[in-house]
């Protein structure tokens, strides 16, 4: 059976691109779209995948990452599906890629003007934990009524003494819409702001597309006396590369029982290690 270029039929891709344009025009606003059936289950990156498939051209260079890794099962399978149906070149080097699909991380290397970063989103609605009804959350967005999102953070401070959201920490986009940045770590929140490249977010199961266009202000919600803070990795060192100050995974050496750290963005780590006179 002959497969259509980039799996989806042309009309579906056109619809998704049209919704993407709308999303870019209203930064942070969740645009509903007709999420298609794909050969992977909803909730496994179908939102991001549909964005990638509808945007990818023959000249594009593709990179797919899953939690910082180019080689996890999820990243490999998604990359292979895209390649089988388009034949585009792939890369692990962030700088080379024109289209980057990522699950739960923004690469350590800042985006370039020619790049689009596509993030996979499980839960696009930042107000959902306080309001179950979609009709009402839409109204709340329209009224710019975000006390629910703030209340969640306040409740965490009351219960645990500090804000406990480590991933998917809500942000205010362009001073207007509060947005769920997908479960990227808090560490990546500042990377959403003022990019040279475009960030698109797609939720396949929830059927929403939204965007952070280049040079948009993105501020993480924070109280005056509880400022926003990212996780600090300044006093830990990557065991493999000797890097410090980047987002790290905490791992346990099973033979010695020792805790050690490793750079989460593996392609960045490899690039750094291959540089002449690298740290280790």
């Amino acid at each position: 059976m002959r497969q259509n270029y980039a799996f989806l039929d042309e009309n579906s891709k056109k619809e998704i691109r049209r919704k993407t344009l709308k999303a870019i025009s209203i930064p942070g606003y969740q645009v509903p779209f007709a999420s298609r059936e794909l050969p992977i289950a909803r909730g496994w990156g179908t939102g991001g995948l549909q964005l990638t498939l509808s945007l990818i051209g023959q000249a594009d260079i593709l990179k797919v990452i899953d939690q910082g890794s180019d080689e996890s099962v999820n990243a490999v399978n998604i990359r292979r599906l895209i390649q089988d149906t388009t034949g585009v070149t792939d890369t692990i080097h962030t700088d080379e890629a024109t289209l980057i699909q990522s699950r739960h991380r923004i690469p350590e290397v800042p985006l370039k003007p020619y790049q689009i970063l596509v993030l996979q989103v499980p839960l696009p609605e930042p107000l959902r934990p306080v309001e179950p009804s979609e009709r009402i959350t839409k109204q709340l967005h329209a009224d710019k009524e975000y006390s629910g999102a703030w209340l969640r953070l306040f409740e965490q401070i009351m219960r645990y003494g500090s804000i406990t959201d480590d991933a998917d920490y809500p942000v205010l986009v362009g001073g207007r819409y509060v947005m769920a940045p997908s479960p990227i770590p808090r560490f990546d929140n500042p990377k959403l702001e003022g990019n040279d490249g475009l960030i698109l977010l797609g939720a396949g199961r929830e059927k929403k597309i939204y965007a952070v266009p280049p040079y948009t202000t993105v501020t993480s919600l924070a109280f005056l006396d509880h400022p926003f803070e990212v996780e600090s990795f300044d006093d830990v060192t990557c065991r493999e590369s000797g890097l410090t100050g980047v987002y790290m995974d905490e791992l346990i050496d099973e033979t010695t029982g020792e805790t050690y750290y490793m750079t989460n963005d593996t392609s960045y780590m490899i690039e750094e290690m291959n540089k002449e006179g690298s740290v280790k």
Partner: peptide
Amino acid sequence: LKMEFSAISNIAEKLIASGSRNVG
């Protein structure tokens, strides 16, 4: 009221809605 949120957060909800951003 939001029955599952603490009493103090319930009061804060009104204060947040009317513009306060200072936990203390």
